[in-house]
Design a protein around this nucleic acid. Sequence first.
DNA 1: CTAGGGTTAG
Length: 609
Amino acid sequence: MPLLRPTLNSLCTKGHLQEALLQMAVKGPEMLFDGYNMLLNDCVNRKAIREGQRVHAHMIKTCYLPPLYLRNRLVILYTKCDYLTDARYVFDEMPERNVVSWTAMISGYSQRGLGFEALHLFVRMLRSGTEPNEFTFATVLTSCTGASGFELGRQIHSLIIKHNYESHIFVGSSLLDMYAKAGKIIEARGVFESLPERDVVSCTAIVSGYAQLGLDEEALELFRRLQKEGISANYVTYASVLTALSGLAALDHGKQVHNHVLRCELPFYVVIQNSLIDMYSKCGNLNYSRRIFDRMPERTVISWNAMLVGYSKHGRGREVVELFRLMREEKRVKPDCVTFLAVLSGCSHGRLEDTGLEIFDEMVKGNNGIQAEIEHYGCVVDLLGRAGRVEEAFEFIKRMPFKPTAAIWGSLLGACRVHSNIDIGAFVGQRLVEIEPENAGNYVILSNLYASAGRWEDVREVRELMMDKAVIKEPGRSWIELDQTLHTFHASDRSHPRREEVFWKVKELSIKFKEAGYVPDLSCVLYDVDEEQKEKILLAHSEKLALAFGLIVAPEKVPIRVIKNLRICVDCHNFAKLISKFYGRDVSLRDKSRFHHIVGGICSCGDYW
DNA sequence: CTAGGGTTAG
């Protein structure tokens, strides 16, 4: 900031802008305000920072003391051009400030993602006695993210009510978005419903609020209703809708939206194309994603990331590495932290552990300008564990510069299960049930590990602990798309119209597979019941119902495409492989973390997931 | 003069 003045002095000496400034001086001091105002206004509109700086420099050089209005324009100029330190310098030097000065500065911080600074300034504004207006509220709420931000957001809400701005459409959409991002969807919906008028932005905010929380059906239902009410949609709306469709893997609907946006020729097409890449890959259709990607006239880092994530989730390690190489050759985009997450997890799922480790080492050396964060370390743990290098993974965790999270221990525990490492598994499992006592899955893996070592006393203890502490947060659910309809199945489902037929089909399959040597994997059952009961529970798993339904209804040449909201269990995975083998059907199964493409009884995940 | 919604990961 001390550099500002000399920089400005040098800028002030050249260019034809100088001409304009000279003219202003000639015409007399009463012309200065209008002249400066006009020039600055023009610079703001064109985001011409160099010229703007020269105008500012001229003020300083001629000892002109700009009034409040012009100082505000300078703050606005600098914030809009992303020169935040300069904006703050002007702001700090102001002899007096009004609501516009404060709001412009707050907006500058919040748009740069510096929410903490923005909130801090807002509090200072209140203390200074300047009354916030609708612009201030709409702005400051965008910085109320995270736990501490939400607390402040609630307080700001009551302030908004006090100032009678709750029904203002800008304030209202910002407010409902704040609630939605904090996971308070009921409050968000309440604000939305109480708005006296609606527009594209407020409608998009609530739809995307549902979508971002994974409430995909609700998002779509609301979107359809709003469409019927005649609300228009733009590229942001469609991006949000596509997010919801990705979550549901609703390929037919996704294609419809695709056709629709092609016909509309919406502006900001990159954003929609990014969403389409993601949608097709999450619907299992990687080739479509790649086709869109290849034909894009311009790509952002998100385009590359979406494509990389696609390959990664489908277990296509070689494609991940190849695309990453292309991305580095292309100098216009720089890989970011998401890129490295996608690449590392792609190497892990694609069995390219040495490549993954090389890329991680490069990251840690700092060659890429990206700091390795805990999630990246988590990918490496996953990668080592998946490759059977369990001890190495354990040592790696001990040496990490981060405190291991439950997710990291969980990943190692999973590796211990697959590679039957009882010593490390028992240690990790005990640690994990302490950190995450509510997660039932941990107890199950741990007790199975003990069982495999014949440590029955420990098995009993873990089971008891589980009954005591574990809660099942999210019920398992699987679905399948047929003629633009999603057919959803729950384990204890009584709702599907063809449930009887589906139930008998599963039973029939089970008998048939048993004759061929299928043994139900009872260790997948969380409940402490007898074996017969366990088998019943297993046969009612939602993914088996959806698979059986797919076998009944899906046309023969088409893969059976099942989506599950949680991780798939070992037994259902076996079951799917048997369906593929016995019926010659390709099965595509998407679970919480990845795709399983099963052809001829062989799964693309290599049986580790 | 100052304002709200969005796409990748977890």
